[in-house]
Simulated assay, not measured.
Amino acid sequence: MKLYGFGGTRSQRALWGLKEVDADFEYISVNLLEGEHKRPEFLKINPAGKVPVLIDGDRVIPESAAIVLYLVDKYPEKALLPADLGERAQAYRWMLFAVTELEQPLWRITRHTMLYPPDKRLPADIALAREDFVAMAAILDKHLDKRTFIVGERLTVADCVTVYLIDWANEFHLIDGFPRLQAYLERLYARPEAPQRIAEARKAA
């Protein structure tokens, strides 16, 4: 397998899944700062021009959450999804909660602070996005009371997808008032399978 990615991006989420299943893969850096994601050879792999992308034989899988779910099916013995149907449903629930309720406000903040040209940045939307994130983060923080992982007694896809977002939010100081989220972040990144934190991965890119 080959993973096309760039340090500090959602590629870290795909890396987490690959490390958790102990997969044999090659990492290929696509330097976003130098525009390598816009080159014709990469656009043939992913017309959206985004990372990460996992290639496994003739299968081309973009989207970090989709990559993690693909690894669930490829390595069922690693049990990244619970066997119990009820717990599996909860893993899906929290994974989708992460990509819809937590990730979207973080993207809005990122776009309006560093991605958009200065004349297109909207400070008011940054403020609204911060409010949106904090409201949803409070729900997850409460859920994590007396829990090590989001679902069940071991790491699942819900954690692989979510913990990267908590680190992203930490970059904006959005979890300062959520001790359970802070503890969850430190606990999961202490795992030997964990990839680099966002700040470290950016420096190394």
Score class of each variant (00 low, 15 high):
residue 12 Q to S: 10
residue 18 L to V: 07
residue 21 V to E: 00
residue 22 D to T: 14
residue 25 F to R: 06
residue 31 N to C: 12
residue 33 L to T: 08
residue 33 L to I: 07
residue 36 E to W: 03
residue 42 F to I: 10
residue 42 F to A: 06
residue 48 A to F: 13
residue 49 G to H: 01
residue 50 K to H: 01
residue 50 K to C: 02
residue 55 I to L: 09
residue 57 G to Y: 09
residue 62 P to D: 08
residue 64 S to M: 05
residue 65 A to G: 15
residue 72 V to D: 01
residue 80 L to Q: 04
residue 85 L to K: 15
residue 87 E to T: 02
residue 96 L to A: 06
residue 100 T to H: 13
residue 101 E to V: 04
residue 106 L to R: 04
residue 110 T to I: 01
residue 111 R to N: 14
residue 111 R to C: 12
residue 112 H to Q: 11
residue 115 L to D: 12
residue 117 P to E: 10
residue 118 P to M: 00
residue 120 K to W: 03
residue 122 L to D: 13
residue 123 P to A: 07
residue 124 A to K: 13
residue 130 R to W: 01
residue 133 F to P: 02
residue 134 V to K: 10
residue 137 A to R: 01
residue 138 A to D: 12
residue 139 I to T: 11
residue 143 H to C: 09
residue 145 D to P: 00
residue 151 V to E: 01
residue 151 V to L: 05
residue 152 G to A: 14
residue 154 R to V: 05
residue 154 R to L: 03
residue 155 L to V: 14
residue 157 V to S: 02
residue 160 C to M: 09
residue 163 V to E: 09
residue 164 Y to S: 04
residue 165 L to S: 06
residue 165 L to Y: 10
residue 169 A to S: 07
residue 170 N to V: 02
residue 170 N to P: 00
residue 172 F to V: 05
residue 179 P to L: 08
residue 179 P to W: 11
residue 179 P to M: 07
residue 180 R to C: 03
residue 181 L to M: 10
residue 183 A to D: 14
residue 183 A to F: 13
residue 188 L to G: 07
residue 188 L to E: 09
residue 188 L to A: 08
residue 193 E to C: 10
residue 195 P to K: 03
residue 199 A to D: 14
residue 200 E to K: 03
residue 203 K to G: 15
residue 203 K to P: 04
